[in-house]
Amino acid sequence: MNPQPFPAGPITCHRGRGLPLVGADIDTDRIIPARFLKCVSFDDLASGVFADDRSERPGDHPFDREHHQGASVLVVNRNFGCGSSREHAPQALMRWGIRALIGESFAEIFFGNCLALGIPCLSAEGRHVAELQEAIAVDPGAELLLDLEVLQVELESEFVGTNRWPVFLDPGPHRMLLSGHWDGTSQLVAHDAELTATATALPYLNGFR
C-alpha cells in the first residue's frame, strides 16, 4: 500500500516504481470482485484489489510481491478495465497506491473513470509495453519518470541503463490533466454564480412567482 496523497491540481509528471501486470482483457470484476461493492466507503477497497486472482496464487501475485510494494505505475496490456462500468475499480487501484497506468489499450469507461480521479491511462505500443514490463521485472527498484508534457516514460536503472519510450494520450484528456481540469466536481463547483442565477429563475424554488 502506498501512503502517497491522492491526485490534485495539474498533473504534469509522476515519479514512482513500476508494477507489471501481464495479460489482456483484464476486466473490472477481476480488479475488484463484486462482493466488495456492498460497502459504505471506498476506503477499504485497497484490500480487495485483485482479491480473487491474488488468492489463487498466494504471495505470488504482482500486487503481493515484496519488491512491488509501494509501486505506483501499473503497466498492463490490451483492453485493461473492460466489463462492468463500476467506479470501484479505479478507486481500488488508487487506494492501493496506483497513480498512473501505462498499457497497450484501455476500456473506454475505465479510462474515463480513471481520468475523473486524476489518474492518467497512457497507451504505448505493444513492443514498448513488453520492454517496459521486462525492464521492471529485472530491476523492480528502478524509478519510472512519466513526463506528461512531452508524453514520454523514462526508466532509470543501474542494471538495465536508462531507457525512454513514447506514450500516447488523446488531446482532450491530455489538456484536462495538464490544466488540472480533470476533476468534474471542481468544474461544477466553480460556476457558483451561474448556479445561483439559474436557481433564482426557477419558479418552483421561488413560490411560483
Partner: peptide, 28 residues
C-alpha cells in the same frame, strides 16, 4: 430552464431541482 453553463468538455451543466438519496449509493 435548468441550464447553468456550458462545460469545457462539450457537455452542459444542469441544475438539479430534487436529489434523492438512499443507503446504497450515497456513502461513497
Amino acid at each position: 430552464l435548468h441550464r447553468v453553463a456550458e462545460l469545457p468538455g462539450g457537455s452542459t451543466q444542469l441544475f438539479i431541482g430534487l436529489h434523492l438519496i438512499h443507503e446504497v449509493t450515497s456513502p461513497q
